[in-house]
Simulated scan of single mutants.
Amino acid sequence: MDTKLIVSASPHLRSDESTQDLMANVIVALTPCVVASAIIFGLRALLVVAVSVIACVAFEWLYCKLLKKQSPIGDLSAVVTGIILALNVPVNMPLGELVIGALVSIIIVKQLFGGIGMNFANPALVGRIVLFISFATEMNAWVYPDAAVDQLSKATPLQVANPGKLNLLDLFMGIHGGVLGETCALAIVLGFVYLVVTKTISAAIPVAYVGSMFVFYMIATGSVHESLAAVLSGGLLFGAVFMATDYVTSPFTLKGKLIYGLALGAVTFAIRYWGSYTEGVSFALLFMNLWVPFINDWTRQTPYGYVKPAKKAAKEGAGK
């Protein structure tokens, strides 16, 4: 007898993609940023990335080995964490301190909370914040392309007194100081396009995040140039594409993603415009990561055919 209808436990929609496939797509999307950082800051950028990746993979393997757990390094998530962490530090970051960031990311934020899918915040994000707080001097020791020194007087774009004088093309191409991954907007955009085309991420969060930031700056400054400079400066684009879209720490409904992106824009703008920090992406992401469970509850889709208890009681009363 042919069975026309098969009823099974959810999820009913399945995909052949594995965690390894998704992480591989993210690695491919991060490759333009790695290449751009090497071109802009020199070959030491590749050494920083390599050390970060090796440290993250080694810490994950060692932790699982000591606790006699199955090692998940084959899913490539530790590799992604290592690349993102490396792209969040300056090229001259001491390698020993970078390894501390990897330890925090993998052991404390990821494994101690149960491994992949259980972390409360993006591991690389927390590792970056710990490095920023613990080694502020090293994290702010910028290296500059020769072409950018005269224009920016050895300051990152967010530290320039008059953003209206910034060259937008230089910002887009990465001719300025900053951490490895945030400088070249072109490389980030290429990665974003790849992730969206391969359906690895939804465009909702990056578009809502970056778009809201542009609107907030337009309202505050009234200048399109300054608003574009704010969008192209700092870690906004990199954070919006590669960190805000983390599967575990971002909402799973479209409405939730849009709310999340708009809230990220509001918090980042508030920190940058009124706060004492010129950058606000990392702290905004950490703050909003903590709100994701609530956003998921507030925006949870209503099951088909569901009737609220009050309406159900009213209908039953009317039927009598």
Rank of each mutant, 00 (worst) to 15 (best):
V292Q: 05
T200F: 01
F172A: 08
P251I: 09
F214T: 08
I54T: 14
A86R: 07
S202C: 03
A314I: 13
I106E: 07
S8G: 11
I116K: 03
M213V: 14
A284H: 08
T221H: 04
V80Q: 01
R128L: 06
V104E: 09
F242N: 00
E17W: 15
L98W: 00
D2I: 14
M118I: 00
S71V: 11
L46E: 02
V196Q: 09
N296A: 09
L66N: 14
M1S: 15
G317S: 15
V267K: 02
K4M: 12
A29Y: 01
V241F: 00
D146R: 10
G235R: 03
R128H: 12
V51M: 11
K255V: 13
F214Y: 09
K110M: 08
L237P: 01
Y306G: 09
L76Y: 08
G234T: 01
K110C: 04
K257C: 03
T200E: 06
S227C: 12
T299D: 12
T245K: 04
R300P: 05
M243W: 03
E316G: 13
N88A: 05
V231E: 07
A58H: 09
G239S: 03
D170P: 11
D170I: 08
L169A: 14
S8D: 14
G42R: 02
K315I: 13
E316W: 04
S18Y: 10
L228S: 12
D170E: 14
K255P: 00
P11V: 05
T278H: 13
S52E: 07
